[in-house]
C-alpha cells in the first residue's frame, strides 16, 4: 500500500531522514515508533506533499507521490499532530468544507458526515462551534475529518498526544474499528504502549533511519521476553531472558553475590529501543 525507497530529507545541514525504506501492507496498522526528532513527522509531511524529499521515492497505492500528488491526496487522510480545525466553524461545517475540497457530492457529504459524527461520538455537538470543544473532542473531530472522503490510507501523526488515558483508549478502539473496515493506518508515536497494543507491525526509527521492523512480539523476541532489572549502586542494569525461570535464576544469583534488589517484568518496545541505541525513547 505504501512503498518507501531510500527516502532522504535535509533541512539545510540537518538530516531529518537518512535513507528510510519500508513497505506497509494493505489493511494493517503500522506504527512508527521513535523519540522526538527521529524524523517521524518529516516522513508524514513527505507522504502528504507538505514537503518534498531531498531524495528517494514513495508510492502510495501504486502511484508515485511526486508524479501524481493530487491523485495520491485523494487516497490519503491526514490526522495531524496539532489540532488544525477551523475554529470559526461548527463540527458539521468543518466536515462539510472538507468534503467539498475532495469533490464529494452534496448527498454523499451529508450522509458521510452524519455517519462519521456518530462514529466519533460527536453527533450531539455537531452544530456547535469547534472553539468550545475539549481537546479529546477536537482529536476525534480531526479523525472524522480525515475520514470524510473515505481514504484508503490514514496517516496519523501522534494521534493520542496530550490525551488522558481513557480518551486514548477510546481512540485506539476507533483506530481498530477502521482497520476492520479495511483502512490502512500508519501512525507515529512515542508511546510504547500505543505501539505495542495497537499496531500489527512497528518500525523503530531513530535519527532518520529505520533501525528495527516487525510485529511488537517479534521485536521483543529479539531482546528476550523477560527483563531483569537490577538495582545496582551505579544505576539500573537490564538483562533479558527467554523465559521466567532463567531470569529468576540470574536475578537470585546476582542478589546472593552482590546484595542488589532486582525485579522481573515482561520486556517491552522501550527495551528494544534501549538495546538498539543505548538511549531511552523519552529522555
Amino acid at each position: 500500500m505504501i512503498l518507501v525507497e531510500d527516502l532522504r530529507k535535509n533541512y539545510g545541514r540537518v538530516k531529518a531522514l537518512r535513507g528510510l525504506s519500508l513497505e506497509i501492507q494493505r489493511g494493517e496498522i503500522f506504527g512508527l515508533l521513535g523519540p522526538n526528532g527521529a524524523g517521524k513527522t518529516t516522513f508524514i509531511r513527505i507522504l502528504t506533499s507538505l514537503t518534498r524529499p531531498t531524495d528517494g521515492r514513495v508510492w502510495i497505492n501504486g502511484l508515485d507521490i511526486n508524479k501524481y500528488p493530487e491523485k495520491v491526496k485523494r487516497k490519503i487522510g491526514l490526522v495531524p499532530q496539532y489540532l488544525n480545525l477551523d475554529q470559526e466553524l461548527t463540527a458539521e461545517e468543518n466536515l462539510e468544507f472538507y468534503g467539498r475540497l475532495y469533490g464529494m457530492a452534496t448527498g454523499e457529504r451529508k450522509r458521510r458526515l452524519e455517519e462519521l459524527l456518530k462514529f466519533v461520538g460527536l453527533a450531539e455537538r455537531a452544530s456547535d462551534l469547534v472553539e468550545g470543544y475539549s481537546m479529546g473532542m477536537k482529536r476525534r473531530l480531526l479523525i472524522a475529518r480525515a475520514l470524510m472522503p473515505s481514504p484508503k490510507v490514514l496517516l496519523m501523526d501522534e494521534p493520542t498526544v496530550g490525551l488522558d488515558p481513557q480518551t486514548r483508549r477510546k481512540l485506539w478502539e476507533l483506530i481498530t474499528a477502521l482497520k476492520n473496515q479495511g483502512v490502512t493506518v500508519l501512525l507515529t508515536t512515542h508511546y510504547i504502549e500505543e505501539a505495542e497494543r495497537l499496531c500489527d507491525r512497528v518500525g523503530i526509527i531513530d535519527e532518520g533511519r529505520l533501525i528495527a521492523l516487525g510485529s511488537p512480539q517479534e521485536l521483543k523476541n529479539k531482546v528476550g521476553l523477560i527483563a531483569v532489572e537490577i538495582m545496582a549502586p551505579d544505576g539500573v542494569k537490564r538483562r533479558f531472558f527467554r523465559n521466567r525461570e532463567k531470569a529468576l535464576e540470574y536475578g537470585s544469583r546476582y542478589y546472593k553475590e552482590n546484595k542488589c534488589d532486582f525485579l522481573l517484568r515482561e520486556a517491552n518496545l522501550e527495551d528494544v529501543f534501549i538495546e538498539l541505541t543505548g538511549r531511552k525513547i523519552r529522555e
Binding site: 491526496k73 488544525n84 475540497l101
Partner: peptide
C-alpha cells in the same frame, strides 16, 4: 499559527 492552511495543502486541489 493555526496550521489550517494544511487543510488546503493536503487536499487534492491545484
Amino acid at each position: 499559527y493555526t496550521k489550517t492552511l494544511e487543510i488546503l495543502l493536503t487536499a487534492p486541489i491545484s
